[in-house]
Design a protein around this nucleic acid. Structure first.
Lengths: 335, 335
DNA sequence: CTGTTAGCGCGTTCAG
DNA sequence: CTGAACGCGCTAACAG
């Protein structure tokens, strides 16, 4: 069986009785070609089903029309909504997106960043890296354009879109204090989470200003998933029964905390108040609905993609970081 | 400022004092090269930070090491979990994944499929297409390797991984009948949903066998999102008050139905039983927890990717469809 | 074991 | 307004 041969520009040129160059001009909308021949060529292209090869094109233009998106885990709604925002904006501008999950694995994070290099992506967006500053810098340095989400790195070449996490931490602390809570459990998040660190800073600052010394026994690392939240919350509730409220790293771990409360017969919010983070759609759907900090995930993604485009096109007007403010959403779990 | 020139294979060859070919062999692990020189070359590559260009490589090998994944909407947990399964398997085999959302837009679906052609992906996985058979066939025909998820198309060139949706529909119908329900509302799903059609077939078959003629006034199209479920469920509950149960296209619309019940003061499951579909993690977390059909989403994705690899490598051992059976999960919303 | 030649499909010169 | 030659970075096929 003869493997069906791909149609190439030469075929189109031949069919049209013109040179390769003329076909190329017709495709790329360049001038130096009469409107009539352009139309004729486009019709032929359509008829024979020719598809220009972005591969060949990329080799000469040094542009691929692709970007890489690196996230921890696309099955986490936080990331999947960001991914959606990125992809929508990318599509609108003619770009395709490589989706890469790191799965909390630093080695894999480096590996995907490297494979994206080899794919010659025009740029990468990295969301929630677990690498430390030096490692991350090294992994990103070879990339032509970079935008970080929820992470700062002191290199002006890298664009930044961040939530004001410190502020989010403060908002939560202030809310809980205002409701009279003094003994507050805290699921800090993954050990290497940059956002978690910032939230903790803001949170601690408010507590200290109120004369409360953050107590390390009230704090636990946790993964940003339901199971881990349940486990760590159960630990805290069991070992530190004086706790009357709990601030969870994200909504998923907060749902886990809700489950832990149910497991242990603690009523929410009567016995214990639970606060989540991010306001994923789940947050308003569980019972009791979660008090949480709203993070505009779709916007985070689309702003990041837009910024990346500026970097790719070398017209990064502003090298200022884009900072988005969170908003406290008060619901039944911590009224 | 001189734009830093990319390091090419020639640089490495020069540095090592060998020819291009030798470097190529060292990289690709081919033989016909001594182990010592290979090591020497790999060290140089590492030292100078050379990254082989997959673009250039693809041009000659006619393989890109990329696949396209086409879904309706990655912010829907159903799809984001499938995407995760696909990406994990892809990564494990050295492939990168283009994630494309169609957003229920048939024109966009064609557009992304076409752009994937131009990117010369080695294959595509299409999940929940909204195109009809002819359109979909035309859009997929130019692709070298294709796997469909939850859709059949009578072309042996296309691999298929499907849930047994008809069975799912039957399982739900049988469960509701066995609990004495006779007037059952039905959110059928998107008008062009293939899965929805199959579930409806199974569902209707069981009803008819029980002597119940499916009543079209009990059925409504709906989008697979919470808002739409709420709206359509409210319509049904208002206009067909005799209904004692509702079968919803997916868990998201079932959650919407739950909200509609709350809006209208109907108790679940006392006044009305609600059944969802897919068993996304949300299903077990809402109150009351949803009775639903379990769909192994991650597995769907990874099986699809594995099958696609077989097609890409031309060793599609089996051209049999892969069929996965759903399982009814009975929870509080329809005990 | 290693090098040389050719060409993948296209866009960018520079001539007509 | 159109075309011919060249090269992007790499690998396959053949020589040595």
């Amino acid at each position: 069986m003869m493997p069906k041969q791909r149609i190439t520009m030469a075929d189109v040129a031949h069919e049209a009785g013109v040179s390769l160059m003329t076909v190329s001009r017709a495709i790329n909308g360049k001038d130096g070609i009469s409107e009539t021949t352009r139309q004729r060529i486009l019709e032929i292209i359509d008829r024979v089903g020719y598809r220009p090869s972005d591969i060949a094109r990329s080799l000469v233009t040094d542009r691929t029309g692709t970007v890489g998106l690196v996230v921890i885990d696309n099955s986490n709604p936080f990331f999947s909504e960001i991914a959606r925002g990125v992809e929508r904006e990318a599509f609108a501008h003619g770009y395709n997106v490589f989706l890469c999950n790191t799965e909390e694995d630093m080695q894999r994070e480096r590996a995907v960043l490297r494979s994206l290099e080899e794919k010659r992506v025009d740029g990468v967006i990295v969301c929630s890296s677990r690498l430390d500053s030096d490692q991350l810098h090294d992994a990103l340095e070879p990339h032509a354009a970079v935008v970080l989400i929820n992470r700062r790195l002191d290199d002006p070449r890298f664009g930044v879109v961040v939530m004001d996490d410190e502020r989010g931490g403060r908002l939560v602390a202030e809310h809980l204090l205002s409701r009279g809570h003094r003994a507050i459990g805290f699921l800090v998040g993954p050990e290497r989470s940059y956002s978690g660190q910032l939230r903790a800073n803001g949170y601690h600052a408010v507590l200290e200003a109120a004369g409360i010394t953050p107590c390390s026994q009230w704090e636990r690392y946790s993964l940003p998933i339901v199971e881990s939240g349940r486990e760590e919350a159960r630990y805290l509730l069991t070992h530190q029964p004086e706790i009357t409220a709990m601030f969870c790293y994200n909504d998923l771990s907060a749902v886990g905390a809700l489950q832990a409360c149910a497991d242990l017969g603690r009523r929410v919010p009567e016995d214990i108040a639970i606060v989540g983070y991010d306001d994923i759609s789940l947050a308003s759907l569980v019972t009791p609905a979660l008090t949480t900090c709203h993070t505009p995930k779709h916007e985070l993604g689309s702003r990041a993609m837009l910024l990346l485009l500026e970097h790719i096109n070398g017209c990064a007007a502003t090298c200022e970081d884009i900072v988005i403010e969170p908003e406290l959403v008060i619901r039944a779990s911590a009224p």
